[in-house]
């Protein structure tokens, strides 16, 4: 598989529980993509903002989402979509 850099804003549906955020679906290019599992979460810093990154699996393949805790913006950073 190959991973493609995207870097686009998306809408995301998220469940907040046990002090964690878990994306459940997101909309990209007019497609609603349901998240099957969140595989990995990590933090980075961009300027003065803390970003939460999520590696998730969905039917279409693998996706990396990010959530900017300052702007409250969700982005689709990368995809590893199955051909």
């Amino acid at each position: 598989m190959s991973v493609t850099e995207i870097g686009e804003k998306i809408k995301a549906g998220v469940v907040f529980s046990r002090n964690m955020a878990e994306p459940k679906w997101f909309k990209w290019k007019e497609r609603k993509i349901d998240v099957i599992s969140t595989n990995f979460i990590w933090n980075t810093v961009e300027g003065s903002a803390m970003l939460l990154h999520f590696s998730v699996s969905a039917e279409g393949g693998y996706y990396e989402l990010s959530f900017n805790q300052k702007t409250l913006e969700w982005r689709l950073e990368k995809t590893g979509e199955k051909s």
């Binding site: 598989m1 599992s37 595989n39 990995f40 590696s55 699996s57 393949g61 693998y62 590893g80």
Partner: peptide
Amino acid sequence: SVEQASNPEL
């Protein structure tokens, strides 16, 4: 290992 933990396809 981190990348494989992050992406089940790997």
